[in-house]
Amino acid sequence: MRLALRIVSILSLTGLILPSVLFLAGRTDLDRTKWLMLLATIVWFVTATPVMWKEPSEPDKEEVIVP
């Protein structure tokens, strides 16, 4: 479940930036860009929150140097 959420959240970030790249390339219009960005925003917060909320805050346990 956690892995699935992580994958969807990463895809949503792609979905967030891709419309603006397509708009810059002249491949889509601004209204569609705005709607897709909103959709990606919703997906991001729904899927990333459970994953990132539970991650340990600093100091990251993996990063702690144990002598």
């Binding site: 970030l13 967030l16 603006s20 790249v21 708009f23 960005m37 917060f45 990132m52 909320w53 805050s57």
Partner: peptide, 26 residues
């Protein structure tokens, strides 16, 4: 809120980038 900020950070960076890309096309 600090935890929420942590969630929002990657999304926010990309929205800022999108501002620039959209503005450039405009």
């Amino acid at each position: 809120v600090a935890r929420f900020a942590n969630v929002a950070a990657p999304w926010m960076v990309l929205v800022f980038l999108a501002f620039g890309l959209v503005g450039l096309r405009q």
